[in-house]
């Protein structure tokens, strides 16, 4: 395992600054979101009615299964987890992972590594492992920000449910990384790989939203977001273990596929 870890560590060290910036932005987003919540509750608007008035597709996409915005957990699901986490943070990790392999192939540094006794599979695995600490750091920092933010506005959140949403949410991000990694091995240009990775995460997100409760709902099964429901996790504390299993299986399968693709491919 040593070589993979060396590759992962080297890659991670180069990404520290990016991870720091994303973490700061996300913590700030969490801070702002939570800071707005008290005034949100005081406003003279019936949010249940407002939610009802959204188009159905919009509700599925950005509201999820939540129907109550007046509690902090429901509010966070809508404002933070459903939109920011699943769509934006997910896209970011897919984008970031898109350069893992393609970045080295694109600028030719891959040759300097792969001429050594490192198989391409281990190279790909090392690159994948490099992103795991990034996911964990972002995940935990956002979790901490939510806990601290809720404390500051004297709202209660159930830590156990918060941990659930971050555990499954972290798994979802790892899947996004895997998708980016696969794109990174398929495409030789970084931009294409990153574009494809974002496209898949974004596209399947929409696919899930747009097909829910239609005749084409089965198409949404192709979407990662079908297997994670922040509302269920945070508001109700229900874990969809089948969904978790799918997320784990997809991550493993996609990483294996990425390694296979890269093993067979011309490097330049």
């Amino acid at each position: 395992m040593i070589d993979e870890l060396d590759i992962a560590l080297f890659e991670f060290n180069q990404r520290r600054r990016g991870i720091l910036i994303v973490s700061v932005l996300l913590v700030a987003t969490v801070g702002l979101t939570i800071a707005v919540f008290p005034s949100f509750g005081e406003a003279d608007v019936d949010f249940a009615e407002l939610l009802e008035s959204y188009p159905e597709e919009f509700q599925t996409a950005f509201v999820g299964s939540v129907s109550d915005l007046s509690s902090l957990d429901g509010y966070l699901v809508v404002e933070l987890y459903q939109l920011v986490w699943l769509l934006i943070v997910g896209s970011y990790f897919a984008y970031a992972a898109g350069s893992l392999v393609a970045g080295e192939v694109d600028r030719n540094s891959a040759e300097l590594v792969l001429v050594r006794p490192i198989s391409r599979t281990r190279f790909v695995l090392g690159k994948f492992l490099a992103m795991l600490p990034a996911v964990i750091i972002v995940d935990l920092l956002v979790l901490a920000a939510v806990v601290v933010g809720a404390g500051l506005i004297d709202e209660e959140l159930r830590l156990s449910r918060l941990l659930l949403v971050h555990a499954v949410g972290g798994l979802y991000l790892i899947d996004c990384v895997a998708i980016g990694l696969l794109a990174s091995t398929v495409f030789k240009r970084v931009r294409r790989a990153q574009g494809a990775a974002i496209g898949v995460v974004f596209g399947t997100f929409l696919l899930d939203s747009l097909t829910t409760d239609t005749d084409y709902e089965f198409l949404g099964n192709l979407s990662l977001t079908r297997y994670i429901d922040p509302g269920e996790l945070l508001v109700l504390g229900n874990v969809d273990w089948g969904g978790v299993a799918v997320l784990v299986a997809v991550a493993c399968a996609v990483v294996v596929l990425a390694a296979e693709v890269f093993e067979r491919r011309d490097l330049s």
């Binding site: 040593i2 080297f10 180069q14 030719n108 050594r116 006794p117």
Partner: peptide, 23 residues
Amino acid sequence: PSDPQFYDEVTGRKTLDYFASLS
């Protein structure tokens, strides 16, 4: 390689450390 490319933000020493860890 022709026109060898390394990792722009990494120092020469760390670059060599990395390759040394592999071979």
